[in-house]
Design a binder for these strands. Sequence first.
DNA 1: GGCGGTGGCGAACGGCGTTCGACTAAGCTG
DNA 2: CAGCTTAGTCGAACGCCGTTCGCCACCGCC
Lengths: 204, 204
Amino acid sequence: MTVLTAEGLPAMSMRRVAQELRTGPASLYAHVSNRYELEDLVYDRIVGEVPLPEPDPARWQEQLTQLMRDTLAAFARYPGAARLTLARVPFTPNSLVYLEVMLALLRAGRLSDRTASFGIDLLSLYVSATGIEDTIHLEQGPTEEAVGERFARMRGYLQSLPADRFPNVVSMAGPLLAGGGDDRFEFGLDILVRGLAATVTQAR
Amino acid sequence: MTVLTAEGLPAMSMRRVAQELRTGPASLYAHVSNRYELEDLVYDRIVGEVPLPEPDPARWQEQLTQLMRDTLAAFARYPGAARLTLARVPFTPNSLVYLEVMLALLRAGRLSDRTASFGIDLLSLYVSATGIEDTIHLEQGPTEEAVGERFARMRGYLQSLPADRFPNVVSMAGPLLAGGGDDRFEFGLDILVRGLAATVTQAR
DNA sequence: GGCGGTGGCGAACGGCGTTCGACTAAGCTG
DNA sequence: CAGCTTAGTCGAACGCCGTTCGCCACCGCC
């Protein structure tokens, strides 16, 4: 966890972890059968850090969105950790607790079994993908200033394109690159949660 | 492209590509400055393979969903290629054409600038993440049989959990693991496109 | 006809995950 | 209490990886 926090997931190699423990890489294999398993343990710890709500049927949508926000925040604390989620079946101890709560929330919303199941996938996919994208932006220059400069350069590039071939891209250069990551995340989250909720009201 | 198709993205190393070209790895650096740049070229080719519609305002939702399906299909032809998309700003030549069409479709739906911009991100993120997940499933055993067996094992595991601590997980073990990847993709796609369209009707 | 610059490329550097086999120390058994 | 088993440690090595260095060969131009 020390290496991950300070240097990111790619730096969390068997060798680097062994070094942190003042030993050689081979020693780790007495405790863990490969890197994947080491990542499993890390992944489970991070999932365990997400605060879980006590499901309240009246506020399920609110609780669900907050859970997604908290999940993304947990990923954000460990650079690169979001990558782990897409490659894993979430059946580790803490993942199961997490899954149980999420199911409880969707059922509180009276979603069908199918919608709840697919909905969990959909929401998880969204949070993971957002986390991964955030990681990448972080890697390319974390400071507020660097981000602004990068966006300005991109905007300039889009606006320099031939307007006859790319009318929409050129005219939308502003909006395309506007809005922080939080705005975008909230926007998508809203669409997803509303969409899932709508499968119920629709059926009435 | 040969290596990628046959052996997947991780196998598409500088060395392996050089070998395919009957030369040493150093020779590639005369044409490409990086592995990242090599991936850029590959990425652009794949994007170029996606058939783009002639936007028809009356059918924008239909065209948009079909475009997403075709995009996922293109990723599926190149195992691991979906990973490339999350790490890149889509400003390569073919990406720009792609972006232009997507913007045209969303504007045909009369979405606001903000909604169109965020919507593109949202849809792209969804297709990429789905593609990445599919890649991983493929790596773990591509045959119909292996997939069925894997799912059966997972279902058995979930059902074996203590029902008092995981009531929802245990009772939903069936639905959670039901449905092929296509069903799930269509489900999410439907929610996203409907959700984006609803931002317009809502405003009336 | 010489020559500069471009691309080709063998060799090497420093990283990676993982395995092998020799070793130690602790704990159980007779 | 001697002997044996076993779990854990770990140096060295294997075969990958991306990338760089420096030398070589060739081609087009003055």
